[in-house]
Design a protein around this nucleic acid. Structure first.
Lengths: 210, 210
DNA sequence: CCATGGTTCGAACGTTCGTTCTGATCGTAC
DNA sequence: GTACGATCAGAACGAACGTTCGAACCATGG
């Protein structure tokens, strides 16, 4: 289960120029298919043979490129999380208003969530399965993500002179947003803008009352 | 995976008087230990041998009493859910005010949640694993649970003349509450009363603003 | 005192798991 | 054309899986 670093990383081919992106694009596609399988069957429920079948890559090939089932999950979670995080940072750099910042946080989270439902479900649902080095790295990103939201909220709280428990508030907000994967239905529930408006309303009015 | 009714239920001993409760108490203890294992390792990750070891009952004994791993999970979920539901009904029968009803709903949910964290995590986290007859039965209880909360909220909405999307509101509330299992720390976060007050505040003020 | 039937067990069944290994094939660079 | 790295199919590995079996155990009723 543990030990991320004992297994050598697959020997990534050293190429020149335009070969690299094609290589990454192909592996990206494979990661997408793997995400779908993990999403449907769960990490433990999905076998390497399932993953191999779904990606079209041979079993041996999977091990050649990814090294282990654990690392496969790690790569998916790491890629998903850091993409969300970098998008968020880009958006937040445009504002200094903490209230607007939290709205942006919600909007960014839900937009990515609905756009990549499967990846986000794997991120939410297979949260505790990675341990060792992999688990530590994912936990690090997650803590930073939490930190950003909490800091924004604390600034907002001070600015408006409000009183509430920041920790409970932030984690309740995360709960609202991350629970979506258990119920979201695009036919019944609107898009990301509508959902983030409604959840943002509940959350903001909720913490804003004196 | 499917088919609940193909396997015969274990022949429950027909006994008189005080033997029954002892029988049930023993099996109840075993279910508690099994809950702990499912909670720690997940349904797929937990093996019948793990469960057998944790409960102190032999592997064959587990099958004698519970029939299958699937039915074991079903019994845990069914017992947990119907206990929550019957407690809720008892409390709700004392009030007719929908606002107070929703507060009671939150209080009841969180109280049981913190009192039986492991069982509730198994209920939340292993939500999609049961299919067939078992899955249908659990889904039925869940829908009824959802219905109660939604009806209360709709009555509250009409009474106060508010406007918000009931579905999104109820499911956001469930998200806040059910996500707790991923972060709750009794040292940092208070007891059930405090948490349900804080979440209740966020939720109520959130939906109440015009 | 033995027969009965629920209870419990160790051992085994066949399957699938994650992973590794062996060669064969194929396209490309020299 | 040949050497090489990428990629493959397929078999094999030991371990672990969910489940079943047959025989002991043990209290009870005749």
């Amino acid at each position: 289960m543990a030990s991320a670093s004992t297994r050598p990383r697959p020997h990534r081919a050293v190429r020149r120029q335009q070969a690299e992106p094609r290589f990454d694009r192909k592996l990206g596609k494979i990661l997408e298919h793997a995400t779908e399988v993990f999403c449907d069957k769960g990490y433990e429920g999905a076998s390497m043979r399932d993953l191999s079948r779904a990606t079209g890559m041979s079993l041996a090939g999977m091990y050649h490129y990814f090294g282990s089932k654990e690392r496969l999950l790690y790569l998916i979670q790491q890629h998903t999380f850091s993409t969300v995080l970098s998008r968020l940072r880009a958006r937040l750099s445009e504002t200094n208003d903490p209230g607007h910042g939290v709205r942006t946080f919600i909007q960014n989270h839900l937009e990515y969530f609905l756009e990549h439902q499967q990846a986000m479900k794997v991120l939410s649902h297979e949260d505790e399965v990675l341990d060792g080095e992999y688990g530590r790295k994912i936990a690090l990103i997650k803590r930073e993500y939490y930190r950003i939201c909490r800091d924004l909220l604390d600034r907002y709280k001070k600015e408006k002179g409000l009183e509430f428990d920041s920790r409970t508030a932030v984690l309740s907000l995360f709960g609202m947003m991350n629970w979506i994967y258990t119920w979201y239905n695009p036919r019944l529930d609107g898009g990301a803008e509508q959902l983030s408006r409604e959840m943002g309303n509940i959350f903001f009015r909720g913490i804003s009352a004196r």
